[in-house]
């Protein structure tokens, strides 16, 4: 069973690396941020799987923090970086 968890975690890590492509390509900043958010989700799953695989239940807290803080960065992006970008576009 541990094997399976670890294998899935590895697979998720692979998809995560593949997701980097979107961050690099863009084209808009929203695409990049969404890709990074997806990273967060994948990382949550990854941590939970590792927690199962190595029987470390306290790692679930790490996943919890990941999930919560990802929301905060997303809001920071929407309220600050994106808003600023829009203003820039308006000037152009």
């Amino acid at each position: 069973m541990e094997m399976l968890y670890l294998a899935i975690a590895l697979f998720l890590l692979l998809t995560l690396v593949a997701g980097l492509w979107r961050v690099l390509r863009g084209p808009t900043s929203a695409d990049r941020m969404l890709a990074a958010q997806l990273f967060g989700t994948t990382a949550v799953a990854c941590v939970l799987l590792l927690a199962q695989a190595f029987e470390r239940p306290m790692l679930r807290d790490v996943a919890l923090i990941f999930a919560l803080l990802a929301a905060v960065t997303a809001v920071a992006f929407v309220r600050r970086a994106w808003a600023a970008g829009d203003q820039n576009d308006a000037v152009k």
């Binding site: 923090i65 803080l69 905060v72 960065t73 920071a76 600050r80 970086a81 808003a83």
Partner: peptide, 13 residues
């Protein structure tokens, strides 16, 4: 990952 990221985004904005 969380707060430093938010700080950087706000500064960039």
């Amino acid at each position: 990952a969380g707060l430093t990221g938010a700080l950087l985004l706000a500064t960039l904005a």
